[in-house]
Simulated assay, not measured.
Amino acid sequence: MPKLTVGPWIATQKLPSKALARDRQAFLERAQHRLQVHEVAGLPLIGLGGSCGKPCFALPYTLSWNDTNTRELEQIGTEFECFVEYGVYPHLKLLDGEQEVAAVQDWTTFATVYLRPGYERAEELLITLRDRLAP
């Protein structure tokens, strides 16, 4: 399965230069791109991570971490050559180089997955997380 296909959309959201950081009109023009609806694997793209800029997808269920689903997440990590780093919420990081490729958040009334758009197996990972973490 491919990388995420929303890269061009993400690029339209980012500040193109520091010179435009105080330009309200330039911001409003970038914000217009948010009206475009995007989905990957049937999951809606709901925004970008504030600090990381990774696209964020809503899972179709709520999620509360427990022993069973954290073990499942670790198994998924193994299958994708990743390990789980448990911070505020779990992150999947590549064994080779420790690059973060995904994070799964459970703080809201629905679960979300943040994915590195350039990760070669991003869509496959999103589908796997959706299917195997479902309560």
Rank of each mutant, 00 (worst) to 15 (best):
P8Q: 07
P8I: 01
P8N: 04
W9S: 01
A11E: 15
A11K: 13
T12W: 00
K14M: 11
L15V: 00
L15H: 02
L15Y: 00
P16D: 11
S17H: 14
K18P: 03
K18H: 02
K18Q: 05
A19S: 13
A19H: 14
L20W: 04
A21W: 04
A21C: 13
R22A: 09
D23H: 13
Q25K: 14
Q25H: 15
Q25I: 13
A26V: 06
A26Y: 02
A26E: 03
F27L: 03
L28F: 04
E29Y: 06
E29S: 07
R30C: 06
R30F: 02
R30N: 07
A31Y: 12
A31W: 06
Q32M: 14
H33K: 03
R34P: 00
R34V: 06
R34K: 14
L35M: 11
L35I: 02
Q36S: 10
Q36Y: 02
V37W: 04
E39R: 08
V40M: 08
A41P: 04
A41T: 02
G42F: 09
G42H: 13
L43R: 10
L43V: 06
L43K: 03
L45K: 08
I46L: 09
L48C: 11
G49W: 03
G50C: 05
S51W: 11
S51L: 08
S51M: 15
C52M: 05
K54I: 09
K54Y: 15
K54R: 15
P55E: 06
P55C: 07
P55V: 03
P55L: 05
P55N: 05
F57D: 04
F57P: 05
F57I: 08
F57V: 07
L59P: 08
L59T: 11
Y61W: 03
T62S: 15
L63D: 07
S64E: 14
W65R: 04
W65V: 06
W65Q: 01
W65A: 00
N66P: 05
D67G: 15
D67F: 10
D67Y: 07
D67E: 14
T68L: 14
T68M: 08
N69E: 09
R71E: 15
E72G: 10
E72Q: 14
L73M: 03
L73V: 03
L73F: 01
E74D: 05
Q75F: 09
I76Y: 08
I76D: 04
I76G: 07
G77Q: 00
E79P: 06
E79I: 09
F80W: 06
F80L: 11
E81I: 01
C82V: 01
C82N: 04
C82E: 05
V84Q: 07
V84C: 10
E85Q: 12
G87Y: 13
G87L: 15
G87P: 00
V88G: 11
V88C: 09
Y89P: 02
Y89L: 12
Y89M: 12
Y89I: 12
P90N: 04
H91I: 10
H91Q: 10
L92W: 08
L92D: 05
L94P: 02
L95I: 13
L95D: 09
D96R: 08
D96W: 00
